[in-house]
Write a protein that binds this DNA or RNA. Structure first.
Lengths: 195, 195
DNA sequence: AACTATACGGAGGGTACCTCCACTTTGTCA
DNA sequence: TGACAAAGTGGAGGTACCCTCCGTATAGTT
């Protein structure tokens, strides 16, 4: 299943060793900084924290939008790749865990996505690609669970994603509440399954 | 019906004549500028266009958020007041026109609302108040139409607003498309009415 | 007309995004 | 291995934006 991991226009890494090092430090630092500061962190701050000059940051990411995009894509890819780890688990277990990760991911990335939407519009390649990636990674887990008879047969992956996406948008709910609601929703997904 | 127009924490106008003049010019200029530039316009630009100094702008609106809020509230109030103009019209005509205005309003104010949401959270007084105002203004039109038998009786104003709000969020649709979809949805609202 | 509370305007402080270019490092090829 | 070109680095500084401060001007009152 590892070959099914779909590739988004995946960001082209730089070639030289030092450049690659700096690139990845910047990406990680930016991810963490945005997670804390809700995407309000300045690029200067990120460069400083990553221990590189501001010029270096701009060599790798020509503007703020580019950095936001790169962080976003990186996270989506990581979430999709993480579906592979779950291939060994029983079908239900795998699907359920992945959806939990999906929700946790959305919780932290909402501010980032909101700012990105101010730059690019909703159906830009970026988001299209990410949606395709989500489907490519999650749908096999779903189908497997359905074929194993642990998920009701009268629904589709689309509906599940929409339901789960809706849950992530619950206004001002604590992470615990969201987890509980997700579990309830997932119980509904099992209800009436053949096994 | 003009007394039913609900008041949002309505912005307190300044007292002195010159101050009031400047205040309103700023508000109008800001509204137009945000409508064009999608809320990206700078406050300096707005002050310049309104023909006042930047200090004057800041005297009336202590920061960017305050100006955005004032424009937003002003527009909501205006939309709600406009329900009064429609009181003379036949019930269906009145409801239908007001919902069209609602959609047109949403189309232009989406960017503004998006930036506001970055400052205040979704269930702040601001938005609560605006929702109350919407209901106060629109529900009587709806009830009147329903009582006149030109709107089906098996639905409520909540549902209609949600449906219409959904239409306003149609991604990258032209104003004409939105109008057409709204008309179709409104036909659905009439379907099976008694008259 | 004099007076005072209110309002005006814009210079300037602080910070953010981004550009430019002199200098350094990496990797390659004779 | 050492020299050299290509690639990469860092930070001063340009421009724009938000906002503060305060000396000046004006509306409304007595």
């Amino acid at each position: 299943m590892s070959t099914t991991t779909p590739q988004i226009p995946s960001v082209a890494r730089p070639k030289r060793a030092d450049a690659l090092r700096n690139y990845e430090r910047l990406l990680i630092t930016a991810r963490d900084a945005f997670a804390e500061g809700g995407s309000a962190t300045s690029l200067e701050e990120i460069a400083r924290r990553a221990g590189v000059g501001i010029g270096t940051l701009y060599r790798h990411f020509p503007n703020r939008q580019a950095l936001l995009e790169a962080v976003y894509v990186e996270e989506v890819e990581s979430l999709c790749r993480s579906a592979d780890d779950l291939a060994e688990l029983p079908p239900w277990e795998a699907l359920s865990r992945w959806l939990h990760r999906f929700v946790a991911y959305m919780a932290t990335k909402q501010a980032l996505a909101a700012e990105l939407l101010a730059y690019v519009d909703r159906d830009a390649d970026l988001f299209q690609g990410c949606r395709r990636a989500f489907y490519g990674a999650g749908e096999p887990l779903f189908v497997r669970a359905q074929e194993a008879g642990v998920v009701r047969s009268d629904t589709g992956f689309d509906e599940v994603i929409q339901m789960v996406a809706g849950i992530t948008k619950m206004p001002s709910a604590s992470p615990q509440q969201i987890e509980r609601v997700l579990d309830m929703a997932l119980d509904g997904l099992r209800y009436g399954a053949s096994a």
